[in-house]
Design a protein around this nucleic acid. Structure first.
Lengths: 152, 152
DNA sequence: CTTCGTGCAAATATTTTGCACCAAT
DNA sequence: ATTGGTGCAAAATATTTGCACGAAG
């Protein structure tokens, strides 16, 4: 069976790029932290553990490359920093985020919630949708004082 | 009849801030460019025309103040710059954006499209929604080659 | 030997902060 | 006098770029 990194390697090769050790280490960090929303600096520090000689500029260049290839999405939560999220393979759409204004946690929603909304927007505004970004700000279940939440 | 700027003035006073000439010039620029999505630098250059002695730091401080008071929303389209949008008065929710990947135009949608989606998210994830950000990327009607668009 | 990719340092861009000064109580 | 607000310059942050060098065909 073909692994995720193999497929990313093929994508790179298909676009005439090499999977150098630095790029591989970067992709591995992203795979190992799929749940997180790492900044370039975060990625840099984690990659440094595998490949201490790597430079921050290379991480930026790799992340930009992966963004162009649609391997990752570059997202922005309004703090001054860009964050990088691996795309779900084969996902038609970008996933959504729930940001807790109490604790700052960012949860992801993979569900496709916008099918109906997109139909409305496409017909009402004659706008051909290619992708969407949906973020909710609010209070997550862990911070809701009035709820006795079973698990976490 | 009470004007928009008067109400903003009252909001400032209510929070123990003054509407200084610099702040007033900044708010006026925002009111005159309600359709646009101005960066701090954009606002600065426009305010300079009314009040040439103003400093960029003051514009930043004013925009931050207005953001805190929820007079404006600070938004981020992924280029490295924050942009500032006047809130619709009385709007329960932030408006949505349509970004054209061909021509870069940003259109606004005031419609509240997410009522049903929010209900689902609140119950499924036990997440109390306070606000949302929805942006669509795609091709606007002006850039669609196959459509003979009547107006605009 | 040519191309692509890298590390480092310098440059750039954006936003924030320190501080002295000014205006209005 | 005290407070809040400002302009300017410097600092802090985040990201990009120039360049010489190294690795791989």
């Amino acid at each position: 069976m073909e692994s995720r990194i193999d497929r990313i390697k093929k994508q790179l090769h298909g676009a005439s790029y090499k999977l150098t050790p630095q790029r591989e280490a970067t992709v591995l960090v992203l795979l190992e932290h799929e749940e997180d929303h790492l900044s370039a600096e975060d990625v840099f520090l984690l990659v440094k553990e595998k490949a201490p000689e790597i430079g921050l500029a290379t991480v930026y260049r790799t992340l930009e490359l992966l963004t162009d290839l649609k391997v990752v999405d570059k997202i922005n939560f309004g703090d001054g920093v860009s964050r990088y999220d691996l795309r779900q393979e084969g996902a038609a759409h970008f996933h959504h985020h729930l940001i807790c204004i109490e604790c700052g946690t960012v949860d992801e929603i993979q569900d496709d919630l916008l099918g109906d909304v997109e139909k409305i927007v496409e017909s009402r505004f004659q706008f051909k949708i290619k992708d969407h970004w949906l973020t909710f700000h609010g209070i997550c279940k862990r911070c809701k004082p009035d709820v006795e939440d079973g698990e976490v």
